[in-house]
């Protein structure tokens, strides 16, 4: 696996799984993708129902927060892939997939997220946080 591919895989898994604090409308710990998803929902309301009130601002804040984290996580993935670049392609693949698998395992088994926007239970695992 090339470092470039490792970077993309790590970045996607970070964005989908790494819990990040909600800066506004928190407290909470959710994946950046969740913030982007909620921002997208708010934007959809503005587009298809009504743009009155603070819905556009709300969508903007959630999307901005999510995209800001996505950018920071891209940088983190970039640094990690640079570190992996010294290794052989096979080892890069092994380590990358191990990181992804371990993250999946931990986030699926444990309730590592805190989701204030959820209908049920503040604590959630990976599947629950995307409900």
């Amino acid at each position: 696996m090339s470092p470039r591919a490792a970077r993309w895989i790590l970045w996607i898994s970070f964005v989908l799984m790494l819990p990040v604090p909600i800066l506004l409308f928190g407290p909470g710990l959710v994946p950046a993708a969740r913030l982007i998803m909620l921002g997208g929902i708010a934007l959809a309301v503005a587009l298809f129902e009504s743009s009155r009130g603070a819905v556009v601002m709300l969508a903007g804040i959630l999307l901005a927060e999510g995209l800001l984290y996505a950018g920071l996580l891209w940088f983190a993935a970039y640094v990690a892939s640079r570190g992996l670049g010294r290794l052989s392609a096979k080892n890069v693949a092994r380590i990358t997939l191990a990181v992804v698998a371990a993250s999946l395992l931990v986030t699926l088994v444990f309730e590592v997220y805190r989701g204030p926007f959820r209908a049920q239970s503040y604590h959630a695992n990976l599947l629950q946080i995307y409900e």
């Binding site: 409308f25 129902e49 819905v55 709300l58 926007f117």
Partner: peptide
């Protein structure tokens, strides 16, 4: 129903 807090924030602000 699915995202009550988001729904509350959006609907309150719009209505």
């Amino acid at each position: 129903r699915r995202w009550p807090k988001l729904g509350y924030m959006i609907v309150n602000s719009q209505m």
